[in-house]
């Protein structure tokens, strides 16, 4: 018998601190599997965000740097320009990327920085206790929108992938989901493509992953995955938003 599935080398042995059923772990593994497959672990520098994934530097078995809240694309820009031969990626949540770091990601994409961004969109602030995020859906109940998000007072959920796809500097933008096996496979392909996009020097690549937060959504892990399929995908359509040949 040969092993058909095992922990990728690009993940450390440290158990992850995420809540039970949180899809952060799945996305970590996909990124690590891609690093293994492209054989770039020794040449990769990851930038960790602030948010639930703040300890990503303990889990990825490559060089990692922690950035100030939302500033991962700015740090990645510096790292990539000093080490143009290295593979640089940022791993950011929706609070980090769409809220406090909205300016950094827009300008990094607009400058066409040759970095890869993995963007976890779970429509809520996880680490701080379930407050409304810019990506929270209309009507979604969070601790800071207890009667449901209203467009008149809180505005509309931001579709970040579509927004960045409009920028000239962006080379590859795709939105994926990890709510079932089929979509996990597709997500991995997209992550791989995003790293290849950087390696071949095409420019900025971002993969938005629709993710879950069972704890703050107040659902079981399985119900959370179903909620992604039923509520998030209709508002955040999956697919390639921009691809430069």
């Amino acid at each position: 018998m040969k092993k058909v599935f095992q922990k990728p080398q690009s993940l450390t042995d440290k158990p992850m601190h995420y809540c039970p059923g949180c899809t952060h772990g799945i996305v970590h593994r996909l990124v690590a599997e891609v690093m293994d497959e492209l054989d770039i672990r020794e040449d990769t520098i990851g930038i960790a965000p602030v948010g639930c994934a703040v300890f990503a530097y303990d889990y990825f078995n490559c060089d990692m740097q922690e950035a100030a809240h939302g500033r991962a694309p700015a740090v990645a820009t510096g790292v990539k320009r000093v080490h143009p031969d290295k593979v640089v990626f940022t791993y950011q949540g929706d609070g980090d990327l769409t809220s406090i770091g909205a300016a950094e990601i827009v300008h990094a994409a607009n400058r066409g920085e040759k970095i890869t961004t993995i963007f976890i969109n779970n429509a809520i602030y996880g680490m701080t206790g379930g407050q409304m995020a810019p990506t929270s859906l209309l009507g979604q109940v969070t601790t800071t929108s207890p009667y449901g998000r209203k467009a008149e007072t809180e505005g509309y959920p931001i579709r970040m992938s579509e927004m960045l796809a409009a920028l000239e500097g962006a080379a590859y933008i795709e939105r994926v989901s990890v709510h079932d096996i089929k979509h996990i496979r597709q997500a991995k392909k997209a992550v791989k493509k995003a790293f290849e996009c950087q390696i071949t020097g095409k420019g900025f690549a971002m993969i938005e992953v629709l993710s879950t937060c069972p704890t703050n959504w107040g659902m079981s892990p399985k119900e959370s995955l179903e909620w992604v399929a039923a509520n998030m995908i209709p508002y955040y359509p999956l697919g390639v938003k921009k691809e430069v040949e």
């Binding site: 018998m1 058909v4 599935f5 922990k7 992850m16 995420y18 772990g25 593994r29 996990i184």
Partner: peptide, 19 residues
């Protein structure tokens, strides 16, 4: 049947599959 679906879905890399 060694399809590894469980391992692919596991967020905590608990599962190893041999076939």
């Amino acid at each position: 049947i060694g399809c590894a679906f469980c391992a692919m879905m596991c967020p905590d890399v608990v599962i190893e599959v041999e076939k």
